[in-house]
Design a protein around this nucleic acid. Structure first.
Lengths: 133, 133
DNA sequence: ATAAACCTTCCAGTATCTGGAAGGTCAAAT
DNA sequence: ATTTGACCTTCCAGATACTGGAAGGTTTAT
């Protein structure tokens, strides 16, 4: 099947499939006589695996490792779990950062009149007057 | 004062200060006879403003707008509030995405033994067997 | 025959820095 | 006076993960 169909079945755009091939995440597929990429079902399965892992926020590098583990019959599930736990930790750090930003921004926005006058606690906070810090 | 001191006072690395200058976020400063960048206090204030805005997750483009508004005596605080509200919305979307990922990952990790055996619900979920979906 | 809808490669751009190379300057120690 | 080390300069490349577009070949349908 050609790249367009592979794209539809995997949920990865044709552009991105070519990109994944170029960085070695996906192996180069067979080609038709005219040079079109020609995929078969196992390759679509790999793409779907990649797409799901990406949707869970794993980096490309993580996905490489996950594919290796997936193909390794002698893997220890501890390896997968550890990679996943590391990823969860990163996500939790990111969530905390974003929640802290959100809290500050909401507090500032609440104090701002949001009318046609120029005085604005948001800008004042960013400018901070640099007296007390 | 030279770029190293400006960096210390603003909390922005020398590298990044030069980068901000190159993209026009910070105006080109005076130079000493020998070609060193020479900053004075108002420029440091601008850098601190930028640094605080970046710490709140505003994009460089947002920061440009915020600086323009900061310098505009006739701004309406509504403009600042609206930009801030837009940013809060984006942060909230991002938090929801991350929390959804986190939820899925934690659920999968809990099901995984994490021992030296190969069977792993995390990989099974990613592979998904493609029966039910 | 021709037009639409595919496919190909290659280059550039997005966002936000960060690292490193090659070389000039400044201040202090010898 | 010289040397050393810590500055500074510019410029180029790399990281992350794609996305867009140009120029051109192929396939399919009318």
């Amino acid at each position: 099947m050609n790249i367009g169909q592979a794209s539809e079945l995997s949920g990865i755009s044709s552009k991105t499939i070519r990109y994944y091939e170029s960085i070695g995440l996906i192996p180069a597929p067979a080609r038709t006589d005219s040079g079109y990429r020609d995929y078969s079902h196992p390759e679509i399965e790999t793409m779907r695996f990649i797409q799901r892992a990406r949707n869970l926020g794993f980096t490309i590098k993580d996905v490489c490792e996950l594919i290796d583990l997936w193909h390794d019959q002698h893997r220890a599930s501890a390896q997968v779990k550890s990679l996943t736990q590391r990823h969860i930790n990163e996500i939790e750090i990111k969530i905390k950062e974003l929640e802290s930003m959100r809290h500050t921004l909401v507090t500032l926005a609440e104090k701002c009149h949001g009318d046609d006058r120029p005085d604005c606690p948001i800008l004042e906070d960013l400018a901070a007057l640099n007296i007390g810090n």
